[in-house]
Simulated scan of single mutants.
Amino acid sequence: MKRIKITPAWYFSDEAGNQLDPQLFVLLEGVHLHGKLTEAAKMAGISYRHAWNLLGKWQEFFGIGLVELQRGRGARLAPLGEKLLWAEQRVIARLGPQLESLGSELNLEIQQTLEGVRPVLRMHASHGYAVELLPQYLDGLHLDLQYCSPREALVALNRGACDLAGFHLPQGPVGQRLVADYRPLLKPRSHRVLRFITRRQGLMIAAGNPCAIQGLKDLTLGETRFINRQLASGTRALLDGLLQAEGLSSRRIRGYEIEEYTHSAVAAYVAAGMADAGFGVEAAARRFGLDFLPLADEDYLLLCHHRSLSEPRLLRFREMIAGQAFQEAVLKLPGYSLDRCGEVEDTEALVTV
């Protein structure tokens, strides 16, 4: 299947028109991951000589080294190399979900022109790594996936703008309080819940935990720098609920007012050394080489209309998420587990979350 993939791109340029080669970012990431220029060159799909010349060219461009090579000790990123790599990671992490949503819209329009009208499943959902996997496994069915906040997804379902709404509820008392907030948007007679996955949330902490963070209380002490999620996100609601449960004031957290818009963006912010800790899913922490302190498990759920459950597109969707291929992919995500994936429940079951 031909698909549009939109990726963010940025570059430095000078008066002579020289522009930063995107391949440099892959090379820098390889050095960061492997600590060897030979392995970084393999990762970038170029020869060692080409890698050496590429580094030389851009080190000359900036007038400062990007990689430090030490005889018998491999390679490591110099301070500017680290800044360039984490800038690239932050751009991708922050803009990725919005570009995926736009790509979904464009792919739908183009594919329907190329192939004629085919079944379309419209899904509005809070962003997550398991949700990202869905388009890869829905053969024969177009998924129009739009990322938004949990409340926006539920509102979209109620106004008929989507067929599935993805949202997440923490297990335990915090989840019960959030259900009360969502209750006006849940219609027990017409809505049904599709079980999906469970994921682990907690503190994403700079590698090695230099600030010795052991819990949320430590964020309110001293000079620990924090990076938050945006106000409308379900993850922010979970954090606020946990702070309330421990009797902690958000006003005492340095950086609480600074926001990012995805789990990956929070993790990239911490990995870049701009904060000591953030809050999000374990999968994001592991992807960026951070320490992780688990604080809550939450159920990621999908809401649909009862009448749509018998439609072929929903039947195909349920078959896919209950299938071995998709479930094996989910289980490879750190902190993710399966929870009766694809089973149907009444909305009343949410009060026990």
Rank of each mutant, 00 (worst) to 15 (best):
E88P: 05
E88K: 12
Q89P: 05
Q89M: 12
R90G: 10
R90F: 15
R90A: 12
R90M: 09
R90V: 02
R90D: 10
V91S: 09
V91A: 13
V91C: 07
I92P: 01
I92M: 13
R94K: 12
R94T: 12
R94Q: 13
R94D: 09
L95C: 03
G96S: 04
P97D: 00
P97I: 00
Q98C: 11
L99K: 04
L99E: 03
E100T: 11
S101R: 12
S101T: 01
S101N: 14
S101I: 00
L102P: 05
G103F: 00
S104E: 03
E105W: 07
E105Y: 06
L106F: 02
N107R: 05
N107W: 01
L108G: 14
L108A: 09
L108Q: 11
L108C: 11
E109C: 07
E109T: 12
E109Y: 07
I110N: 12
I110G: 12
Q111V: 00
Q111L: 15
Q112G: 06
T113D: 15
T113E: 15
T113V: 13
T113I: 11
T113S: 15
L114A: 14
G116V: 05
G116N: 07
G116H: 08
R118Q: 15
R118G: 12
P119Y: 00
P119K: 01
V120S: 05
V120T: 11
V120M: 03
V120C: 08
L121E: 11
L121W: 08
R122H: 11
R122E: 11
M123H: 07
M123A: 13
M123I: 15
M123K: 03
M123T: 13
H124D: 10
H124E: 06
H124C: 06
H124L: 04
